[in-house]
Amino acid sequence: MSADSSDYVLETQNLIKEFKGFTAVDDVNLKVQRGHIHALIGPNGAGKTTVFNLLTKFLTPTSGRILYNGDDITSMKSAAIARKGVVRSFQISAVFPHLSVLENVRVALQRKEGNSFHFWRHESVLDNLNDRAVELLDSVGLADFADATTVDLSYGRKRALEIATTLALEPELMLLDEPTQGMGHEDVDVVANLIKKVSKDRTILMVEHNLHVVSKLADQITVLQRGAILTEGTYEKVSADPRVKEAYLGVAADESEEAA
């Protein structure tokens, strides 16, 4: 087991989530290897986002265990899991729309400063974080937009901002929920390259519909169907599996055309 815990950043054991009369996640044993980009794919309703919500405790599992670096985090709260280094993004771009682009990143940097409850101090004490925030924005190509109000950004830039905000926490494990959803071709490539770039020194688990992106990025793929793992492996292995073709690929091909 000791070998396992160093190889795998994240592991689930017999993870089950039941809603009234229906099992959304059915006995999932997921192993995410350190340093990998691991993609979670599957048709709509396969339980991908539910798995994400369980991993970050936005939902509580019915049974099963979640291990992070070998520690059981099943009973921890969402915010505590984030502080441990597992940071997620959301399907709909998760930004703070009426804060400036810089402030979005700074809110993430601010937590470690230990002054987040200081209501009697002026916010200018946060200015020492500005350089680091601009650096992060620069790494996703947004440095020129630092002073813009976030709501005015294009969709692709909002997603890039979200990644910069997540990076500010220096997460060991990033969970990205459909990072390219709803994007045009150009934005998809920009974000895919960005994910590749930020994957150095960290592990990424992503839900992704766009198989082009998956084939380009993922080291390991897990296919979910009706809440259970259908198969796992590299893109070559998974895409050759006739069950996957039947369950997923046909549908997905249509979808990605629609999205484009």
Binding site: A82, F90, F119
Partner: peptide, 24 residues
């Protein structure tokens, strides 16, 4: 207009995201 106020505004704007950044 304090560091605390920044977090409050973040919560107002997107509570789930504030949680996922590690704020209780």
């Amino acid at each position: 207009h304090s560091p605390f106020g920044q977090v409050l505004k973040a919560i107002r704007e997107n509570e789930a995201r504030a949680t996922s950044l590690g704020y209780n």
